[in-house]
Design a protein around this nucleic acid. Sequence first.
DNA 1: CACGCTCACGTTATTGTATAACACTCGCGC
DNA 2: GCGCGAGTGTTATACAATAACGTGAGCGTG
Lengths: 161, 161
Amino acid sequence: MSRPVTPLEGFSTHDHRRCRTETLAVAERLSAERGLKLTPIRRRVLEILLEGHRALGAYDILHRLAQDGLGSQPPVAYRALTFLRELGVVHRIEKLNAFVVCTHPRDAHVPAFLICRKCSSVAEASAPSQGGLLGPAAQAAGFAIETSVLEAEGLCPGCQG
Amino acid sequence: MSRPVTPLEGFSTHDHRRCRTETLAVAERLSAERGLKLTPIRRRVLEILLEGHRALGAYDILHRLAQDGLGSQPPVAYRALTFLRELGVVHRIEKLNAFVVCTHPRDAHVPAFLICRKCSSVAEASAPSQGGLLGPAAQAAGFAIETSVLEAEGLCPGCQG
DNA sequence: CACGCTCACGTTATTGTATAACACTCGCGC
DNA sequence: GCGCGAGTGTTATACAATAACGTGAGCGTG
């Protein structure tokens, strides 16, 4: 079973401290907007993911939560992740069965990812909203797209020979 | 750069009997070309998937195999599925952890799927070779794409309204 | 023929991923 | 106080995937 959960962020550097505080602020605001709460567990999960722009498995996150005394059973992690995903600040990488923080949580967008198969780093590409590639095909077929998954696997700049 | 996708097999009806026999013939031929065999188990797995353009989980397939007395342990199903995927006649749907037959197994293509969340039927669109949406982003990042996942979930024509 | 080789399958066991279902508390409005 | 939804705790289970081992059939070579 490929358990990625390794390296770093996108393939470019950025002001990560600011990235972190902004994302937390956005999460706080979006929660309030919906009349919901960014509880300690939820906040902690987001913080864990914010430690780096890496994809973490649900059970990695769960173990971290357990270390902090914030819950030890799978549903605890999954519920927090579901909440954060609905908020739009966390995405799921289908190909890796793992989760990452969104790099631009305020914009409406269809998440698209570049995943390095060697170092497991993940970069989120900014894709224009609905469909792009699949849009025309969907329209021709009379299909109503609700969510999209765009993921590419290959080699990041640093891992190419 | 990003040519439109050619919609294929939509959710429309088609000559499925022919679809079935042709896919089996292709599988047979590709196996022979590689000096490998389309054994009873492998053939049966392909037939099961050919019963409809639906995504089936590995364990669904395994249970079917077991009913036919062709194997009852997970590796049996996974090995057959791996073989068929390498042949190019079966694709994996990451979003569903499930498998479908390819609708145009002879052409080189990047598979793209429209998945109905209600009836689980899957339409395969034929995407132009590399990346479409992700191509430009990948190039900008210096990322070398090797494989792509393009999947959209929503409602098929029959399940709307 | 004996040997070594690859393909294919059988089997046991384990790990990882995810959710169902139920119970309970808390804060809040009425 | 009461009902209600949000949120968490907990148990149990289902589903997905692979590791690691063994068996044997078939084939080519010496």
